[in-house]
Nucleic acid binder design. Structure first.
Lengths: 229, 229
DNA sequence: CGAATCCTTGAGTTCCCTCAAGAGAAGTGG
DNA sequence: CCACTTCTCTTGAGGGAACTCAAGGATTCG
């Protein structure tokens, strides 16, 4: 349908493609819709292709056998996920679940790879895309291994402030505090205590999902703190 | 020199290239040598290109301001590293240091990208390469966030057993126990205690850098253990 | 307005780290 | 080959950050 074609043209991955090229990708893409909280795929599933988000939000996460969750990525419109299974190994390396009502385009592995061979520019864009994800993972590993939780939270708040530039030093969490805990590698109880502690120190003020960054300099210092050797 | 050309042909990334194609990559590659413990690049450095290891070993790692180290990758002959800076962002996302005397080939960013456009097969190989690294990172994040240290160690020992297949359930650490601690996200003291505990439980026997896996089934169970929700 | 979810707060525990010191292994030079 | 330094590893005692368990408040939503 035409609607999807227009949507595809707005996806960064496909920027710069001619209308004709776009049509080829449109021809192999399949639009799919998911309700809030639906599973798109599970860790270890055979990956028959990858996804590009048109609308909504998706979390990519790992689960421990006992059910503890670690969020790896939060993705929104224009982001792609599941590429790993297309280019290597064949199985998805984590779980994917929607955070809201979500529309995606699914690109089947074989058809996409065949098309990719004839579009070196797109291959370079995908290389950049995977590289960005690798870079984000290095930051997440650094966060998990080398920072304490208050420092991880400060880093995340400053990251949000950069994303939501111009909000006058106030950021809005796009996710619940429970999800945020699972993104930062902790649990809601601990996160709640740390919100309280940082508020007590005058670094932030918490009003529901809105966080006022009262002392950006102090937060920067906290974000930079790391564990001892 | 001819020697490097032969070495290039043995690198998985360049498998399947014709002699002529190989010569083009050989033409832009620069061989470099490093002594043991030398820094190849630092976190945040401008990345003018990437590296392929001919001989030796390299660790990629992050440092906290206080000097705590987290190893992200250990690479050996045939492995490449530093690609992230070639395709996105321009700076290296972590530090790289040799573990032994090491020879590498350096491919300058611009020349490599230009060449890559004309070799879609190589682009697909690089996509597979980056995808494998993304998959490994998901495992490492899972390990750091969802497993306790004994479980991380068991996972690593079983991973080594798979790599060093056929050694009759005995593996050899390719790195010092100190490095292993920094790979698993802990410190030598803790690792030493856990080696002791697992030995006491009859799961392993430690003789210097050689570890006998006395109870693979028990180790599998330990490796699968995860933190509670 | 009640149910369900999300969040907060408290008390107790645990895993792992810090600090400190000694034992062992490995490489160096006489 | 042996004393030497140097690096690596082990062991002990103590402390702290974060987790578990439990229950009460606050939102949200039908």
């Amino acid at each position: 349908m035409e609607k999807t074609l227009l949507a595809l043209s707005r996806i960064p991955l496909f920027h710069g493609l001619s209308r004709e090229e776009l049509l080829r990708f449109h021809a192999i893409g399949q639009e799919k819709s998911f309700a809030r909280g639906e599973w798109i795929f599970s860790d270890g599933d055979e990956g028959e292709g990858f996804f590009v988000i048109l609308e909504g939000g998706v979390k990519i996460f790992k689960l421990s056998p006992a059910g503890k969750e670690q969020i790896l990525h939060l993705f929104g419109p224009g982001d792609s996920f599941g590429e790993v299974a297309v280019f290597e190994g064949g199985s998805f390396p984590a779980n994917a679940q929607t955070l809201q009502k979500t529309r995606v385009v699914f690109f089947p592995r074989t058809a996409f790879r065949a098309l990719l061979r004839r579009h070196p520019d797109l291959a370079l864009k995908l290389l950049a895309d995977l590289s960005r994800k690798l870079r984000e993972f290095t930051l997440q590993i650094e966060s998990l291994a080398l920072k304490e939780i208050p420092s991880r939270l400060a880093s995340y708040l400053l990251y949000l402030a950069r994303e939501q530039a111009g909000n006058g030093k106030e950021v809005t969490l796009g996710i619940s505090k429970g999800e945020l805990a699972r993104l930062l590698g902790t649990i809601p109880e601990t996160l709640s205590r740390i919100f309280g502690r940082l508020s007590g120190q005058g670094l932030i003020r918490v009003t529901g999902r809105r966080i006022a960054l009262l002392d950006p300099v102090g937060l920067e210092a906290l974000a930079r703190e790391g564990k001892a050797p």
